[in-house]
Design a protein around this nucleic acid. Structure first.
Lengths: 203, 203
DNA sequence: TCGACACGACCGACCAGTCAGTCGAGTGAG
DNA sequence: CTCACTCGACTGACTGGTCGGTCGTGTCGA
């Protein structure tokens, strides 16, 4: 294939980083390819050597971001720790990630909305969400305690609720004028949800 | 001001309706003003008589949609029914609204994302969210039962969680490839949340 | 007759994408 | 060793289509 594939990978990464920053600052539609070019320290032609179009750049960026997140999730899932602790780690990972670069959340929101126009982005988010719920369901089933949701459909329903809770709280945090402590609020809410989930008898 | 203010209001409403449909179908950025013009049965000049720019049209649309929703919320709040029933009504209103026109949710998501570029939209959503949480807090405090969250900060925190739950579930529903029954899932999740909220002793 | 309202052809800024060309690292025949 | 040639990577000035917005011109009710 390429003589030096590593170079290509590095170049792509460099462009992704620049694109993320530019898209985060200006928003996808207002960002000019020339802006990305400038930020990445590449030429216009160089950019188009690696990406066929602006949409492909955005799609690639989504892939990269979600892959990164999936990687983190997989790491948590395979960590040798009690399920309760691993759940806590998931929440903390979200909060830390967003606290460190607050631009990420609005960027993700915009890319998500972009899914309406670019089907592949939608598909990508879709698959990612599906897998996230799947992971959560496993985690919840492993929680232990006699009344933790049983594996199977019940755990999946519970996982959907937890996932929605996380999404919603992150969304609120993203949009809030006076940002609250995301980790605290998120963890508290998830705990409340779990408490409600226990004690759930038939139906 | 206008000789016939009613006519102007009607015209605006007609344009809003068309704009909502076009934006929902094509997405804000892909939608051409000419598309809106065609859909609304107005001329370009007519459209620009009422809206100074595309952004102002979008902003107006956001105002109108949120005002409509706020209206519905106020109606629920002042309804003469037990708090539990009113909460149920809120959930049902969401589910029905979205079931009736499934295009609304993605449209709202896109407009929300547009808030990154158009500050007034962001402000508008912000105020709306704030008020929504406020209403929910009142509702939760009125829920009755000895352990319903007390009015004040505690109710507000609880309300934030409930609001996030609703947002998140709607988001999941919006993006899900195989849409589930939103009303069921939402109500179940809210109930779980409330159950967890009860029994919450000090801290 | 007047002015609010409506019309739609037209303008021109803007920007994604192109393309003709440069550069430097291989390759291999003589 | 070297010269002629290939090829992948990269450059940046340029273009052509696309729309948001304008403007000169009606129309019609009061």
């Amino acid at each position: 294939m390429t003589v030096d594939a590593d170079r290509a990978v590095a170049r792509k990464a460099q462009i992704f980083e620049a694109a993320a920053a530019v898209f985060a600052r200006l928003g996808y539609h207002h960002a000019r390819m020339d802006d990305v070019v400038r930020a990445a320290g590449v030429s216009k032609g160089g950019l188009y050597w690696y990406f066929r179009s602006k949409e492909e750049l955005a799609t690639g960026l989504v892939h990269q971001m979600l892959a990164h997140e999936a990687e983190a999730m997989r790491a948590v899932m395979t960590a040798g720790a009690p399920a309760a602790d691993r759940l806590r780690m998931v929440v903390r990972a979200f909060a830390r990630e967003l606290a460190q670069n607050p631009d990420r959340a609005p960027l993700a929101l915009e890319l998500l909305a972009l899914g309406r126009t670019i089907p592949e982005i939608r598909t990508c988010f879709d698959a990612h969400h599906e897998q996230f719920v799947e992971h959560l369901a496993v985690l919840l089933a492993q929680l232990g305690g006699p009344d933790s949701p049983a594996p199977g459909p019940r755990a999946r329903t519970a996982a959907l609720a937890v996932a929605a809770m996380i999404d919603g709280m992150v969304l609120r945090w993203t949009l809030a004028r006076s940002p609250f402590d995301l980790e605290d609020a998120l963890w508290a809410a998830v705990q409340v949800l779990l408490r409600g989930l226990r004690e759930t008898g038939p139906r």
